[in-house]
């Protein structure tokens, strides 16, 4: 699910940039053709409207899995503000306390929650932009069509910001990459025995 999401997110972001360029929100701020998916707006739009199905279906599967199995509660909660501050300080001092990759630190928890909420928000604002008449109630709730466009753009910025930090840190702690590719850390009895052994070794 993570890798489907990774591909679809890139499709949605880069095709979104192609659509954005047709009528920019920030005056003078364009994405160069290099970063846009689709050689002009029509195809960026087609990519965006194709990608949305994969994003929504994969996202729903991910959310269902996260809630039903209790993974979200277990991995992402609780978040203690003091821990967040401490982790930020540690990270700025280049102390990456990531000994156990099955446990997220407080900043990770916070960032994952933010990006999940941003993803949900993108689907809601996206729906409002796609069908502003059929979902006119939603549009007026969100402050009008042009405001929703800005919200949709801001949601993209949050996700891109997350991606930069996420990818940079994953590359800095390379062991996590294998876990992501292979589908999570594995623990076999054999492994355990070795672990005990090496622990003894340390204490000796």
């Amino acid at each position: 699910m993570h890798w489907i999401n990774a591909v679809v997110m890139l499709v949605m972001i880069t095709s979104g940039w192609g659509i954005y360029d047709d009528d920019v929100i920030i005056r003078g701020f364009y994405f160069s053709s290099f970063w846009r998916l689709g050689d002009w707006a029509a195809w960026s739009l087609n990519w965006h409207f194709a990608g949305m199905w994969f994003l929504v279906i994969n996202g729903l599967a991910y959310l269902t899995y996260g809630f039903v199995t209790g993974r979200f509660r277990e991995k992402l909660l609780p978040i203690r503000p003091a821990e967040v501050v401490q982790t930020v300080i540690d990270t700025l001092h280049f102390k990456f306390a990531h000994e156990d990759i099955t446990v997220y630190n407080a900043v990770q928890k916070l960032l994952y929650i933010i990006v999940i909420l941003a993803g949900i928000s993108q689907v809601v604002t996206g729906l409002a932009i796609w069908k502003p008449v059929q979902f006119s109630g939603l549009v007026s709730l969100l402050g009008g069509f042009q405001t929703v466009r800005v919200l949709h753009f801001a949601g993209m910025a949050v996700i891109v910001g997350f991606l930069i930090v996420h990818v940079a840190l994953a590359l800095l702690v390379p062991k996590t990459l294998w876990a992501m590719v292979a589908g999570g850390p594995r623990v076999t009895p054999n492994n355990q025995a070795q672990a005990h052994h090496s622990q003894k070794g340390h204490t000796a």
Partner: peptide, 13 residues
């Protein structure tokens, strides 16, 4: 507890 999470976490070593 998630049925998918391992009973024993990998060793920090």
């Amino acid at each position: 507890r998630s049925p998918f999470s391992p009973d024993v976490v990998p060793d920090t070593a």
